[in-house]
Write a protein that binds this DNA or RNA. Structure first.
Lengths: 355, 355
DNA sequence: CTGAAAGCGCTTACAG
DNA sequence: CTGAAAGCGCTTACAG
């Protein structure tokens, strides 16, 4: 009677077996491979299971089959529309193949990331998807020794751990600033979180700087306001600071569409005309970007597709097939020019590099 | 050389025990209750565990301890900023108390909901949080027999299953329309998903209708464009349809801020002045609402707080304490008037009803 | 402070 | 087509 006090015991396969008058493994078989069971027995087991509202204990099943049936995804933040789309893509494709998705949200924290990775590994996932890489040697070491398939996404590492489905953040930063340069801007700023907590943002900043340098333009217009994930208010404050210190700035590339929205707002407040006085570009092509006034130039990422392909790679790898797409996919991105950089109609610029 | 036969065996506590020269349960004890182990032994075990990069199998642990260590949340959509905040609140508080969160995204589908509930139950969660209720008798039945603590959130049921932390969607709908009536509007429309897939939205619509009826105003201005979750484009289309069919409409309550943004956009395109010709109200007070032009009147919900309180209730319930807050909390909501309903400065109206 | 035994609820070979 | 045995990797009492 020890453990009965606190908690009602769950229905187990033994209960079902007894009610149906069969053995344990006939119950298991009926649920997993009904075609190997005679119709009469099957019917009896199924009705017993239904009557008892039997829900098999997945943990017990995983333990004995040594297959957890789930895939883990580690991401910097759920408050990011793009990452969420990737999660959707993963989730949809994985579910169609019988896997469940375990989500680990790191809140852009290196410590959280390590702790979460450890906990996810403890659930013995059959594969791990990384949305934008591991940020500490400890985490990298832990994963390296875990002997589990890994798909990195949302970036394009020089030295991939295993599989990759992504695009180059550096290229995004460079392409956006190149396009601003082409439009004749010469005093172009960057507004994003500085520092090591958002490696992807840092990559874009490096791309931005590279573009400026190869055009021989000044590269000192940037602010260190806010940290990832950059929100609207960071855009307001960052714009305020930049407009004070660099009144000559004529274009600004932002860390995200959120930030860009804050910048738009601050410009309106100060009577700074967009795009005439200041051209503004975001990142992520959030839902609202094209409905703002002025509509916002941004970078569209293949977010859902990333999740979908990553899931396909995983399914193929686990089942031992040759990876369905190539195990290293660079999906590219699109720059969408809208009113905030002086385009009347939205115009598509495309960029992608197959591996 | 692919992947070492099918799968490299994981490191188990037995491996650690051997390396440290102790028994299995000394390893377990060192990890769970280090204070009961002698410092010397502890050190040996810890260093062995570190050397092997040992990550305990949580499924095995759950099975033998009969405590899964996780709590499940079932929600209509992750693409909803408010629900995401609730998830954050749950996740933060639960983590502080040693529980992990399992997320089930139903995509606003009744079938998905049932299937997900079954799968979550299969992981033997120690409690379940429902963001806005179960939509099928089958799901209700399944949960009722599962003998697991349940917290319903984001609504205010007449007949609660167990615990509740929420607010009345009906009251929200009524309060918003009442406030539009107070401002002198008489031809007030509603733009939301009709039908059974979004019970919360339907509740708000009923509240809206009740407000109109008790004021003796007409209640026929509504559209059936789109379905939950209503997106920006549904707002564009819905507004277009409503403005065609009811050109006399002078105010519009929308299903969400997303929808309202689409409405704003369509009004701009048609030269319909907001708020002079048409007052517009949203729902959810999304990040961007106050940064739009005109800024958007909306309803602010205690999203994060809901998650936090729900988690506290769960922790208390599991540990057998009296529920820390009352087990039925009505947290109320706030209507925030902004420019889209003719307010120059944002003005707070408050509404809440303690149980 | 440490360990041998039993068991959590399933599934995987293997017999029949 | 069906079942008795062994075991997945831990933890929970219980001895010592």
């Amino acid at each position: 009677m020890s453990r009965k006090a606190s908690k009602a015991r769950s229905i187990t396969s033994r209960d079902v077996a007894e009610l149906a008058g069969v053995s344990l493994m006939t119950v298991s078989r009926t649920l997993r491979t009904p075609e190997l069971v005679s119709p009469a027995t099957r019917k009896r087991v199924e009705s017993a299971a239904r009557k008892l509202n039997y829900v098999p204990d997945l943990a017990a099943g995983s333990l004995s089959s040594q297959r957890s049936g789930h895939v883990a995804v580690l991401l910097p933040s759920l408050r990011h529309a793009g990452f969420l789309r990737t999660v959707d893509g993963l989730s949809d494709t994985l579910r169609d193949n019988g896997y469940h998705l375990l989500i680990g949200d790191c809140y852009y924290s290196v410590d959280q990331q390590l702790e979460l990775l450890r906990m996810l590994l403890g659930r013995r996932p059959e594969a791990i998807v990384l949305i934008s890489g591991l940020d500490s040697p400890a985490a990298q070491d832990l994963l390296a020794r875990a002997a589990v398939p890994v798909v990195e996404t949302w970036h394009w590492p020089d030295d991939p751990h295993n599989m990759v489905v992504g695009f180059s953040q550096f290229d995004v930063g460079r392409a956006m600033t190149d396009s601003l340069i082409e439009k004749g801007h010469t005093r172009i700023g960057f507004l994003g979180a500085l520092g090591p907590f958002d490696p992807n943002g840092e990559q874009r900043r490096q791309g931005h700087l590279a573009a400026l340098r190869s055009a021989g333009l000044r590269d000192d217009i940037q602010s260190s306001v806010g940290k990832a994930p950059m929100e609207i208010e960071d855009g307001v404050k960052g714009a305020s600071w930049l407009l004070e210190h660099f009144p000559e700035m004529d274009a600004l590339a932002c860390a995200s569409d959120m930030t860009a929205l804050g910048v738009l707002h601050e410009c309106r407040r100060r009577g700074c005309a967009v795009p005439e006085q200041l051209a503004i570009a975001g990142f992520g092509d959030f839902d609202f970007a094209q409905y703002l006034q002025p509509s916002l130039t941004s970078v569209r990422l293949p977010s859902y597709r990333i999740g979908q392909l990553a899931a396909q790679l995983i399914v193929a790898t686990i089942s031992g097939e040759a990876p369905s797409p190539a195990p290293h996919c660079n999906l590219g991105f699109e720059i969408i020019h809208r009113q905030s950089t002086g385009n009347h109609d939205s115009l598509l610029s495309y960029s992608s590099s197959a591996p």
